[in-house]
């Protein structure tokens, strides 16, 4: 049973990873990575890492991927047209000579890693792990992880929280809008020329009566002896 589940999850993991690398649309690449992460959480469960699997689904497949989808939706539309024009230009600069070299180096790395892992001859790698007895506080449960985090790895825990704070501040500083507000927004007002709504008991209304004040409000002639409320040339009352 666990072998069948392992192979299904492993195929999902590898297919998701290949999808991330090969799909040309970044949005589909993100969705492929979500599938990859969910399959990886199944592998974590098979390795008895229950808390890490739950954190993987919640933190990665939930929060981080939502952030990716937002940024792809913000940036991505111009991406496609840009790519088609830039593909030709970058090809002339030797970028396509770099691509097969990259595949070659990664293939060499894979062969090397597999030789190191499978040809090591270690007995423990061939076994299926340490003995495990299910329980509420055994290996991998939230209680076990929380106990470790708050006793033996307390310094790591605190440093990680500081790192998260720095990353949040850095994200805000990097992505903020520079140069303040647009200059056309700033309107100069004379000290007494604050626009006032009608019918709020201003001096002009008291002298001329509310009907006259309403009549002058929109006209605002230059030589008029009466002060209308919105023109703000004198405000001498």
């Amino acid at each position: 049973m666990s072998a069948i589940l392992f192979f299904i999850a492993a195929i999902g993991v590898i297919a998701g990873a290949i999808g991330v690398v090969t799909l040309s649309n970044p949005f589909y690449a993100v969705l492929s990575l979500v599938g990859h992460l969910l399959s990886l959480a199944v592998l974590f469960l098979l390795l008895r890492a229950e808390f890490v699997a739950a954190a993987q689904v919640v933190v990665y497949a939930g929060a981080v991927m939502v952030l990716y989808v937002f940024v792809v939706a913000y940036v991505g539309d111009e991406q496609q047209s840009l790519r088609s024009t830039l593909a030709r230009r970058s090809r002339s600069r030797g970028a396509d000579g770099r691509r097969p070299t990259g595949v070659l180096f990664a293939g060499a790395l894979l062969v090397e890693l597999l030789i190191a892992l499978l040809g090591s001859g270690l007995k423990a790698v061939e076994g299926s792990g340490a003995p495990y007895a299910p329980g509420s506080r055994t290996f991998g449960t939230p209680a076990y992880i929380g106990n470790l985090l708050l006793t033996r790895f307390l310094l790591v825990f605190e440093v990680t929280s500081l790192l998260l704070l720095i990353a949040a501040v850095g994200g805000v500083v990097l992505a903020r809008r520079r140069g303040g507000l647009d200059e056309s927004v700033d309107i100069d007002y004379a000290p007494l020329a604050i626009p006032r709504p009608l019918g709020t008991g201003t001096m002009a209304e008291a002298v001329e009566g509310p009907s006259l004040a309403y009549a002058h409000a929109g006209v605002a002639e230059a030589g008029s002896p009466t002060e209308s409320e919105h023109d703000g040339s004198g405000g001498g009352w």
């Binding site: 392992f6 390795l47 990664a106 790395l109 892992l117 499978l118 299926s128 792990g129």
Partner: peptide, 24 residues
């Protein structure tokens, strides 16, 4: 499943990621 299978899958994922970083 033996641990070696999981390690092989992790090596494959790592190398696919390396290909992506070098190529895209």
């Amino acid at each position: 499943m033996s641990i070696a299978w999981y390690l092989s899958v992790s090596a494959i994922i790592f190398c696919i990621g390396a290909v992506g970083v070098l190529m895209r």
